Amino acid sequence: MAAQRTYGGLSAEERRAQRRSALLDAALEIIGTQGLDKLTVSGMCTQAGLNERYYYESFGSRDDVLTALVDGIAEELVLAIVAAAHTATGDSRDIAHAAITAGIHLLTDDPRKTEVTMVAAMATPQLRARTTETIRVFARLVASEGVEFYGVTDPAPDPVIDFRATYLVGGLVQTLTSWVRGDLAIGRDTLIDYTTDVFVLLGEDFARRNDPD
């Protein structure tokens, strides 16, 4: 097999990945500062400093760009939440508070990410479907973390775990959206505290109901 040609120490695949990343960064900046309506192929390429042909190298439509942005932010969230939960010490409230703080801070420290997750993620049927699937992924993550924390060993855990995890994640998404829009007159720290209260309440209630003692 012929060796892959490199330029500047980077392979063709690495250069494509760099261009794709630059286009996504450009899309995030445009959406976050100018609004979703201003996201165009030419605008993205100008912002990224790339020829328009490179857009079609990575994306077939604007939905593909937005899906990639949503997926990227979701991946960041998973890493931040899991890292916070696994490094936190203390009781269930301390761990939940750390994980929720990490997630909410990641989404709200950068208003551009807030705009993508709260507005762009619901812009089209394709994106709404992707958002629904992302919520399912996070619900499964919450359920998995809960099973591990509370030491559930049943090979077929109670279906209420998935129900409560889905309820918590879906409710948090709606609550965070309302908070970002200014419909909830509370500060971010209070939002985190209230969210922690609800997660712990349902988690501890489940633990009590399933305690054999």
Rank of each mutant, 00 (worst) to 15 (best):
E14M: 05
E76L: 09
R53T: 11
A3M: 03
P155T: 07
E204G: 06
A139P: 04
A80M: 02
Y56T: 03
F59W: 00
G35M: 06
T33E: 13
R140S: 14
Y7N: 10
D109S: 14
S11G: 03
Y55K: 00
T46W: 04
L176Q: 06
D197P: 09
I192P: 03
D94Y: 03
E76V: 02
T166M: 14
K113V: 01
D64Q: 10
I135W: 11
A17M: 07
V160F: 12
V70P: 01
A88R: 01
D63S: 01
I31Q: 02
Y56N: 02
A68L: 04
T46R: 15
A139Y: 05
L28D: 07
V142G: 07
V65A: 00
P212H: 01
L28F: 08
A74P: 00
E29A: 14
G170R: 13
V142N: 08
G35P: 00
A207R: 08
L39R: 11
I104H: 08
E14W: 08
V198E: 01
G32D: 13
R112A: 15
T40W: 10
D158L: 11
P157W: 02
T175V: 12
A2L: 08
R128Y: 05
E76K: 09
K113Q: 13
C45N: 06
R62M: 10
R209C: 04
Y54T: 03
A74G: 04
A80L: 09
Y150R: 03
R53V: 12
G35Q: 05
L24N: 00
T87R: 14
R53M: 10
P159K: 12
